[in-house]
Design a protein around this nucleic acid. Sequence first.
DNA 1: CCAAAAGTGTTCCGTCTACACCCATGG
DNA 2: CCATGGGTGTAGACGGAACACTTTTGG
Lengths: 223, 223
Amino acid sequence: MTNFYGEHQKAYVSVDCIVLGFEEGCLKLLIGRRKMDPGRGQWSLYGGFVEPDESLEQAASRVLMQLTGLEHLYMKQVGAYGAIDRDPGERVISIAYCALINVKDYDSELRFNHGLEWVPLNELPDLYSDHNQMVEDTIAMLRRHINTDPLSFNLLPELFTLTQLQHVYEAILGHEMDKRNFRKRMKQIGFVEKTDKIDKKTSKRGAALYRFNPDKYVGLKKV
Amino acid sequence: MTNFYGEHQKAYVSVDCIVLGFEEGCLKLLIGRRKMDPGRGQWSLYGGFVEPDESLEQAASRVLMQLTGLEHLYMKQVGAYGAIDRDPGERVISIAYCALINVKDYDSELRFNHGLEWVPLNELPDLYSDHNQMVEDTIAMLRRHINTDPLSFNLLPELFTLTQLQHVYEAILGHEMDKRNFRKRMKQIGFVEKTDKIDKKTSKRGAALYRFNPDKYVGLKKV
DNA sequence: CCAAAAGTGTTCCGTCTACACCCATGG
DNA sequence: CCATGGGTGTAGACGGAACACTTTTGG
């Protein structure tokens, strides 16, 4: 490789994953105890370094794959973090990516092997370095986008009830919503479609199961 | 410096500045011919490498200072760009920052010395690497934020007429707006305040000059 | 038979949009 | 005196928020 920029210094570049799941009516973040110095033992997001043969997105996907065994997850760049001493040992620039996953799809053996925990967002401990800031920025971003992007479905199984979906909205937005208004809105936006299946687990009467229809969404995308 | 992460490779980290100004009723971008290899001679954003003693924000501010002689400008991170071959020679991760400046404040001697041009957004040439994408992402971000953040003032002198401000909105949003509705809205939001000065340059009757009042804004910030 | 969750419409209010005319003045 | 840009109000459309009762059925 030709050395074009020799007079400048390089830095380590990492990705950090803000992995969010939905369980017991609240948003939970996947965190673990840091296994390396510096900061060994502190609660931390899961991250990894960007290797020479991968883009930032690819690095984030790989890290997430190692972590969850899942591919093609919903991911979105949150931002770049580069305070001088954000890593106490070396200069590390980190790009934060958030991922929304269905907790049920997650192989809990993998989670156990990595020593990770699902922690409710309102009970977050102090995290390593600027990781709390990354989480905060992620939530702010989700709130801004929940009404325009089909985010919420990623936190649920393929089939879900409207009540479950509403709980996801409530968890992200941080406040309760009116059931009738919510259902009216879901009817309007058009890309949640009713199936003929019925869920009897959570109610005696049974609730209709719905599905996200991406085909009906792409039409709106360009607007 | 202790070598904690020795098994991983470092990369060059740069910042690229999307510098926007407002002139002749349209948004213009500050670009120049690239003065180094690779890509020498191509139209390009102005950028620079992040040095060991500065954060990403500091690097962006410094680069902008070198460029314009101006400090404390409105800047906002647009995102991180890290495709493997985005720089043909080396692995470079770049963080894009946008800056909104008042063209009149800009020292045109400096601009000349750097060989830079103000180019209307709708006449942009092909830029180096992924710089067109950065510009596109910037505009999308500005459109999302123009109604919530006090952006637009940064493109105008300290004192401005409501008509000028409306032209800025129109340039960013890409469509014309109704004069009466616009002025009504500016009255509502409350942080544009009328001064007793009058501008006679653009009209015979004279137009009231307004000023952005940050004090009245911070109150809204937390909402 | 009753507790528990599902499901369903209407009214009200505030916000956004469309729209047209008079004012002040320099030349 | 007239061309030019500055300045103002109102009525209708639309979308979001508030609000309560009936249905089903497992236990």
